[in-house]
Design a protein around this nucleic acid. Structure first.
Length: 501
RNA sequence: GAUCCCGUAGCUCAGCCGGUAGAGCAUUUGACUUUUAAUCAAAGGGUCACAGGUUCGAAUCCUGUCGGGAUCACCA
C-alpha cells in the first residue's frame, strides 16, 4: 500500500527501536497462554478467586488508560475482551516499556483474576510480554454501555470499502463480524456432519474443467500451458458428482467453490460456495423431506430457534415447509392459468399483467419473467416451488404424471432462491436430446446454454441409478441465518476492483 | 451497463450560496497507583481521491478519470 507513513506510524517504528534497545524482543517465538478471555469473564467467582490465581492471557491491545503509576489495558483475543491491570510496583522492569506500547500491539499477561472496584472482572498482571509490535495504527473504536445496558459505539470503523479491502482490520475492531464467520463455519460443519451421519461421502471434483456444465452461466476461462488447452473454472460440480453415482457411490456431496463470470451485487459474487448432494435410489419427494429436515435442524442448532428475522420479515423455518406447484402459484398471484400455453399466448398473458418481455423471448424466458415479477416476492415463508416446465431444466427427469413438466423443486425463503433439486434425469436418450436442444440454443446465440458433454452422456449410458440431487447456495443460507442482507458480509474477502495507484 | 449518492487528519465526521482547512477520538509532552468513551493542561498532524477548467482567488462551481455505496438491468 502507501509507502508514505503518517506521524503515528513513524512513532511506532521509533518505539520499536527503543524497545529493542531496551533488550525487548518485539517478535518472540511463543507464549504459553492458559486462558481465553471469555473463560475468565464467565467463570470468575468472587467467593473463589483462587480458581484463577494463576492465568496467562494474550491478545491485542484495544484500549489504554494510563494513570501514572498504574494502567488499565483492554486486550482482545479470539473470544472477547478482557481488562488487565498493571501496577508499577509489581512490574519494575517492564513498567517503563509500557509507554512504548500502543493500541494494536499484541501482548501476553501472566497474573491472577480479580474484580476491580468498579466491578469488572480483570487480570492483575505479574508480568508482561510483548508478543508483536504493530506498525500500523488501527481505527480507534470506543464503546459505552448505557444505563439500559445498550452498547453505544463511538467512531465505528464503518467505511465499507476499507472494511472489505482490509478485512483483518475489520475483524479486529468490529467483533460482531467475527460472530458471522463463526456461524458460517458452524453451518458448514453441521451440514457435513448431517450428511456423514447418513453414510454419504464427501468428495472433491475438478475445479478446472475442460467442458463446463451443470448450470447456465458464463464461465471464467483459463489456459493450461503443458496441454495447451483452454480450461474453465467450474460453474457447478453436478456432472462430476453424477459420474460418481454412476461409479457406484450411493451418496456423494461436495461443498464447492463455483465461479460465474457475471455481474456482482448484493446476492452475487463471482466466486461463491454451493453444496451439492446426490443420493441414489431416491427422488425429489424424498429430497424435499431431507431438505426441510436439514434446514430446520440447522436453524435450530445455529440460532437456538426456528424463527429468523430477515430483511424485516419474521420467518419460521419449522418443518414442514409449504409445497406449491409452479403453475398453481401463477394462478394464485396473477389469476392466469399459464399451463400449456404457447409462446404467443404467454406474451399476451405477460402484457395483460404489465410484465415487460422482449418480443423474441422464449416461452421459458417469459415464464421466468412473470415468476420473477409477480410470484417470487410473495414467497416469504419457506416454500418449495415444484414441477417446473421441462425446457427450463435440461438435467431434470420428466414428471411421472404431468406432460411437459419435470420433477424439480426450488426452495424460496424471503423471496430468494435457496436450493434447487431434481429427480435426476438418468435416461441417456432423453438426456442426449435435451443437451442437443441446448446446443441449438447455444448456436442461436444463447451464451448460457449448456455444452454437450459426450463423456457425461457416456456415463449415463453406462447407467446411473434413479437419483435425487440437491444444490444449496451456502452464502445465501448463511445470510439468512445471520440476518446479513449483503453477500459481502458473509464472505471474508468479497471480490473488489483492485486499487489503482 | 444505466442512474443517483459519496470520497476532507490514523478513525468518525463538520466545513460546500468561492476568500489560505475544523471538532472529537487517536498521537506527542506533563500530572495522576482501581480506571473504563478515564480526567486535566499543552503540542504536533492534511497533495481536501486524481486531472483539467472557470476565477484575482477553488475543499467549495463545471468537466473528465479512479474507487466505493445504493437502486435498476443482467444473472437461476
Amino acid at each position: 500500500m502507501s509507502e508514505l507513513k503518517n506521524d503515528q506510524e513513524l512513532r511506532r517504528e521509533e518505539e520499536l527501536e527503543l524497545l529493542e534497545q531496551a533488550g525487548v524482543n518485539a517478535y518472540p517465538y511463543s507464549f504459553n497462554k492458559t486462558h481465553d478471555a471469555i473463560n475468565i469473564l464467565n467463570n470468575y467467582k468472587d467467593e473463589a478467586p483462587e480458581e484463577f490465581a494463576s492465568v496467562a492471557v494474550a491478545g491485542r491491545i484495544m484500549s489504554i488508560r494510563r494513570m501514572g503509576k498504574a494502567s488499565f489495558f483492554h486486550i482482545s483475543d479470539q473470544t472477547g475482551k478482557i481488562q488487565v491491570y498493571l501496577k508499577k510496583d509489581e512490574l519494575p522492569e517492564f513498567y517503563e516499556n509500557l509507554k512504548l506500547l500502543d493500541i494494536g500491539d499484541i501482548i501476553g499477561i501472566e497474573g491472577y483474576g480479580f474484580r476491580t472496584k468498579t466491578g469488572e472482572v480483570s487480570v492483575h498482571a505479574k508480568s508482561v510480554a510483548l508478543l508483536c509490535k504493530s506498525l500500523r495504527s488501527l481505527p480507534v473504536v470506543k464503546e459505552e454501555i448505557d444505563e439500559q445496558g445498550n452498547k453505544i459505539v463511538y467512531d465505528a470503523f464503518a467505511d465499507k470499502e476499507l472494511r472489505y479491502r482490509r478485512r483483518y482490520v475489520d475483524l479486529i475492531v468490529n467483533p460482531e463480524v467475527k460472530k458471522t464467520f463463526f456461524k458460517r463455519s458452524k453451518i458448514i460443519s453441521f451440514m457435513r456432519n448431517y450428511f456423514e451421519a447418513q453414510g454419504w461421502l464427501e468428495v472433491e471434483t475438478p475445479i478446472l474443467q475442460p467442458i463446463y456444465g451443470g448450470a447456465s452461466a458464463r464461465p471464467f476461462i483459463t489456459h493450461h500451458n503443458a496441454l495447451d488447452i483452454p480450461l474453465y473454472l467450474r460453474i457447478a460440480d453436478e456432472l462430476y458428482l453424477k459420474r460418481l453415482i454412476v461409479g457406484g457411490f450411493e451418496g456423494v456431496f461436495e461443498i464447492s467453490k463455483n465461479f460465474r463470470n457475471e455481474g456482482m451485487d448484493k446476492t452475487h459474487n463471482p466466486e461463491f460456495t454451493a453444496m451439492e448432494i446426490y443420493v441414489a435410489y431416491k427422488d425429489y419427494n424424498w429430497m424435499m423431506e431431507m431438505t426441510e429436515d436439514l434446514i430446520s435442524n440447522l436453524a435450530f442448532t445455529i440460532n437456538g430457534t426456528h424463527e429468523v428475522e430477515y430483511d424485516g420479515h419474521n420467518i419460521s423455518l419449522q418443518k414442514p415447509f409449504r409445497r406449491a406447484k409452479m403453475f398453481d402459484l401463477f394462478k394464485e398471484y396473477t389469476g392466469l392459468d399459464l399451463k400449456g400455453k404457447n409462446r404467443v399466448e404467454l406474451i399476451a398473458a405477460a402484457k395483460s399483467i404489465n410484465v415487460e418481455v422482449e418480443a423474441n423471448a422464449s416461452s421459458m424466458k417469459i415464464l421466468d419473467e412473470i415468476f420473477g415479477a409477480k410470484v417470487e416476492h410473495h414467497l416469504i415463508q419457506p416454500t418449495f416451488v415444484i414441477d417446473y416446465p421441462l425446457e427450463m431444466s435440461p438435467l431434470a427427469k420428466k414428471h411421472r404424471n404431468e406432460d411437459g413438466l419435470v420433477e424439480r423443486f426450488e426452495l424460496f425463503v424471503c423471496g430468494k432462491e435457496l436450493a434447487n433439486a431434481f429427480s435426476e434425469l438418468n435416461d441417456p436418450r432423453d438426456q442426449r436430446q435435451r443437451l442437443e436442444e441446448q446446443a441449438l440454443n447455444r448456436a442461436a446465440g444463447d451464451e448460457e446454454a449448456m455444452i454437450l458433454d459426450e463423456d457425461f452422456l457416456y456415463a449415463l449410458e453406462v447407467g446411473m441409478p434413479p437419483t435425487a440431487g440437491l444444490g444449496i447456495g451456502i452464502d445465501r443460507l448463511v445470510m439468512m441465518l445471520t440476518g446479513e442482507t449483503s453477500i459481502r458480509d458473509v464472505l471474508f474477502f468479497p471480490q473488489m476492483r483492485p486499487e489503482k495507484k
